[in-house]
Design a protein around this nucleic acid. Sequence first.
DNA 1: ATCACTTGTTCCGATTATCGGAACTGCGTT
DNA 2: AACGCAGTTCCGATAATCGGAACAAGTGAT
Lengths: 264, 264
Amino acid sequence: MPDRQLAKTLANGLNLLILLSRQEGDASLDELTKLAGQSKTACFRLLATLKEMNFVEQDAQSKRYRLGAQNISIGASALNSLSLRHVAMPFMEKLRALSDETVNMSVLEGTDIVFVARLEASHIINTRHRIGERLPAHCTCQGKAIMAFSPPEKLERLLGQINLRAVTEHTLATPQAIKKELALIRRRGIALNAQELEKGLCAVAAPILDYSGYAVASLNIAFPLLRHSQQEAIEDFAPAVAKACQEISRLLGCTRPAPFEPQG
Amino acid sequence: MPDRQLAKTLANGLNLLILLSRQEGDASLDELTKLAGQSKTACFRLLATLKEMNFVEQDAQSKRYRLGAQNISIGASALNSLSLRHVAMPFMEKLRALSDETVNMSVLEGTDIVFVARLEASHIINTRHRIGERLPAHCTCQGKAIMAFSPPEKLERLLGQINLRAVTEHTLATPQAIKKELALIRRRGIALNAQELEKGLCAVAAPILDYSGYAVASLNIAFPLLRHSQQEAIEDFAPAVAKACQEISRLLGCTRPAPFEPQG
DNA sequence: ATCACTTGTTCCGATTATCGGAACTGCGTT
DNA sequence: AACGCAGTTCCGATAATCGGAACAAGTGAT
């Protein structure tokens, strides 16, 4: 996997950090050793280093490892340095006022999306995502919106990496199906999630593009089909989301023209 | 630097990540090279590795580095798995060693505080609170410390809900009195409980703030006036409690500066 | 209570990954 | 056009990493 000259030790250490974050709660040295596929000694040394720098903590009695407070501090810093959030927030507030449904912003990280901002609807029945949470990109309209407006070579690489497990019966299951869907999204400027992630959950998303004309993030409105039909979403929400994203993109220096058939 | 067997490459890479997070916004390779005190080549390789794993991003045109989305995801994971208790425990142990009095941590729930961690003094005469126990927030220094550093709208809501029964003759009895007291606490960074809950019981508390700059919990040292005077508490315990809480807050991503007159 | 077994930790030599200097590239300025 | 500057690549010497073996400390079973 290492094509270029990369710092292998650093990569191994970071990999342990990622494994630990994907783990529920804490993990033992042995568990991490097996997950990472390395020697016990190497893992031990790497974890000792991570511990020294507060990236992991070790329980005094059980000796199990968990994520340290350093990650919280750096994560908060990463959120703050995202100028996107500040630019987008007023638009997200407008969208929520319009829809009274939850508005999310996500970025693409590998084959997953990560939530970076969120304004919740006032309803009790709601989506339960949190900032920092990740989801498979191809199962979400936010992920599809970003992928549809990504550079072709990046997209090809992603399609090769995507784990095509079907989350519901509506999930796109083949690279061909995804490509066809992305072409449609590219024409319309809008991505739809019709129960692909969870039954009864629907959402519309549009991409936020930067000066290069490619997507850096996406905004969506998510809602249960209890309150709105898919048709309502397309007619009422989609144009508003698309317009908000176009304005944000313009603020980021994007000059790419909007697609021709936003109404599809 | 410790002499132990640590993975130096990993440490150097993590150090770059920390430097980047302390930086306002982004940083160039040269800047990071100087800050880290390393060769340009080494930094470049480490940053390339960090980039590969989405811990940093690189702007396509300016080549400058900024924190990547991976940190947001891991930070959120850390927040969930690492309870406040784990972060605060070592600091609480230090406070108890310093004072040989009982150290408590509480969070606010409604108009009450709830004890979530506790280290007891060795003395026989002692406070008898237990983890999970609740007390009216406005009668305790812990509650006042949290309220003083809560969002204004939340505070207003609370003040309307508080049941203003006077527990002792020293208890704050009107919203005006409470507001005045909270303003004082906000300036000093320290909350005092002078027999407001029980005759002869005194305590000093400071707030623990998260990345938003608002309080999520508070720490106190509680003791009977038998062993220390109120003046001793202000001179000896208050600065230690304030310092501990500031350090914990920083670990949680708080950047809010400490108040100006911690000694009041 | 003892023994076997699991998990975490230390030691040490061989190997290999890392480091830093020098050289190359691309870009903006004088 | 030449220069300087920042980022990137190349390459050999060196120093750091790795993994096996041994040790320590618990844990559970006989």
